[in-house]
């Protein structure tokens, strides 16, 4: 699965980084930085996708 960010929706809330600290960090403005986009579809990743207040995260099959 690939984790993608819709940058037109992302407002830098930071919930994804709080839930996936070893996969997502935040840049100096607060926007997420993905450490590799290929992810196993595990619970933690799905939880982060569901937590995004702006619905800016999505998992796609690739």
């Amino acid at each position: 699965m690939t984790l993608e960010i819709d940058w037109t929706r992302c407002d830098g809330h930071g919930l994804c980084a709080a839930l996936l600290p070893d996969r997502i960090s935040r840049d100096e403005w607060g926007f997420p930085v993905l450490h590799g986009t290929k992810l196993p579809p595990d619970t933690a990743v799905r939880r982060a996708v569901a937590a995004c207040p702006a619905l800016a995260l999505r998992l796609t099959r690739t």
Binding site: W7, T8, D11, G12, D27, W29, G30, F31
Partner: peptide, 9 residues
Amino acid sequence: GQCGPCRFG
């Protein structure tokens, strides 16, 4: 200005 990293970066 619609994407944060571009808008601030």
